[in-house]
Measured scan of single mutants.
Amino acid sequence: LQAFIKTLTGKTFTVEMEPSDTIENLKAKIQDKEGIPPDQQRLIFAGKQLEDGRTLSDYNIQKESTLHLVL
């Protein structure tokens, strides 16, 4: 599935991932794409901060969901 990552500066980019991917995997993909170390990334979806060990499906993240990236 493709999801949108929106930063506080208003920049939006897309990442490809599977519902079974962990938040940790997602942070690694963001690092590959944007060069931001995972330990500096905080991802917010539906008002909740996402925990590394959980999966996208745990948070009911669907295709074309928008996640907010806070540094």
Score class of each variant (00 low, 15 high):
residue 19 P to Y: 13
residue 1 L to Q: 05
residue 55 T to M: 10
residue 51 E to F: 05
residue 12 T to W: 11
residue 31 Q to E: 09
residue 20 S to F: 11
residue 71 L to N: 07
residue 63 K to A: 15
residue 41 Q to C: 05
residue 45 F to A: 03
residue 24 E to D: 07
residue 21 D to W: 11
residue 7 T to E: 03
residue 17 M to Q: 02
residue 51 E to M: 10
residue 23 I to R: 01
residue 58 D to C: 03
residue 65 S to V: 15
residue 7 T to Q: 06
residue 47 G to D: 06
residue 56 L to E: 01
residue 19 P to W: 14
residue 62 Q to C: 06
residue 13 F to W: 05
residue 38 P to G: 07
residue 41 Q to L: 05
residue 46 A to P: 01
residue 66 T to W: 07
residue 53 G to H: 14
residue 11 K to N: 08
residue 60 N to F: 07
residue 55 T to A: 08
residue 50 L to K: 01
residue 71 L to Q: 07
residue 11 K to M: 08
residue 32 D to H: 11
residue 25 N to C: 09
residue 20 S to Q: 10
residue 66 T to Q: 07
residue 9 T to E: 12
residue 21 D to Q: 07
residue 8 L to G: 12
residue 59 Y to L: 06
residue 42 R to T: 14
residue 39 D to L: 09
residue 50 L to W: 03
residue 37 P to C: 06
residue 35 G to T: 02
residue 2 Q to E: 07
residue 33 K to E: 07
residue 31 Q to K: 09
residue 22 T to R: 07
residue 49 Q to Y: 13
residue 8 L to S: 15
residue 52 D to N: 12
residue 50 L to I: 04
residue 22 T to S: 08
residue 4 F to R: 13
residue 11 K to R: 14
residue 55 T to D: 03
residue 54 R to A: 09
residue 14 T to H: 08
residue 16 E to T: 12
residue 17 M to D: 00
residue 45 F to L: 09
residue 37 P to K: 06
residue 28 A to Q: 13
residue 56 L to G: 01
residue 16 E to M: 12
residue 30 I to D: 00
residue 31 Q to M: 13
residue 52 D to L: 05
residue 24 E to W: 13
residue 27 K to C: 01
residue 68 H to D: 08
residue 17 M to W: 12
residue 33 K to R: 12
residue 38 P to H: 11
residue 16 E to L: 11
residue 47 G to P: 01
residue 18 E to R: 13
residue 9 T to R: 10
residue 3 A to T: 10
residue 50 L to P: 02
residue 26 L to I: 08
residue 2 Q to N: 11
residue 5 I to G: 01
residue 70 V to A: 07
residue 37 P to D: 07
residue 22 T to M: 05
residue 10 G to M: 03
residue 5 I to W: 02
residue 43 L to A: 00
residue 5 I to R: 00
residue 65 S to D: 14
residue 11 K to C: 08
residue 29 K to V: 06
residue 46 A to K: 14
residue 46 A to W: 08
residue 67 L to P: 04
residue 42 R to M: 13
residue 63 K to C: 06
residue 46 A to R: 14
residue 37 P to I: 04
residue 55 T to I: 08
residue 61 I to S: 04
residue 40 Q to I: 11
residue 10 G to W: 03
residue 5 I to Y: 01
residue 50 L to F: 02
residue 55 T to F: 08
residue 9 T to G: 13
residue 53 G to C: 06
residue 67 L to Q: 02
residue 30 I to T: 00
residue 33 K to Q: 13
residue 55 T to R: 12
residue 28 A to D: 06
residue 7 T to P: 05
residue 33 K to A: 11
residue 23 I to M: 03
residue 37 P to S: 08
residue 19 P to K: 07
residue 30 I to A: 00
residue 53 G to V: 06
residue 51 E to V: 06
residue 42 R to S: 10
residue 70 V to Y: 13
residue 10 G to L: 03
residue 27 K to E: 00
residue 50 L to C: 02
residue 4 F to I: 15
residue 70 V to H: 09
residue 71 L to V: 13
residue 2 Q to K: 14
residue 49 Q to I: 15
residue 2 Q to G: 05
residue 32 D to G: 08
residue 67 L to D: 01
residue 48 K to G: 06
residue 7 T to I: 10
residue 29 K to W: 06
residue 57 S to D: 09
residue 63 K to L: 08
residue 24 E to K: 13
residue 64 E to M: 10
residue 39 D to R: 10
residue 8 L to D: 14
residue 24 E to Q: 13
residue 19 P to C: 06
residue 6 K to E: 09
residue 61 I to L: 08
residue 12 T to N: 06
residue 8 L to N: 14
residue 6 K to P: 02
residue 8 L to F: 11
residue 67 L to F: 07
residue 58 D to Y: 14
residue 53 G to A: 10
residue 65 S to A: 13
residue 35 G to H: 06
residue 56 L to P: 02
residue 44 I to Q: 06
residue 52 D to F: 03
residue 65 S to I: 13
residue 69 L to M: 07
residue 37 P to F: 04
residue 3 A to G: 05
residue 69 L to T: 00
residue 1 L to P: 03
residue 42 R to N: 11
residue 39 D to Q: 09
residue 71 L to T: 11
residue 51 E to A: 07
residue 5 I to Q: 02
residue 5 I to N: 02
residue 60 N to V: 07
residue 66 T to K: 06
residue 18 E to P: 03
residue 50 L to T: 03
residue 42 R to E: 09
residue 60 N to E: 07
residue 44 I to C: 12
residue 65 S to L: 09
residue 2 Q to I: 15
residue 69 L to I: 12
residue 21 D to K: 03
residue 71 L to A: 07
residue 54 R to W: 10
residue 6 K to H: 14
residue 27 K to A: 01
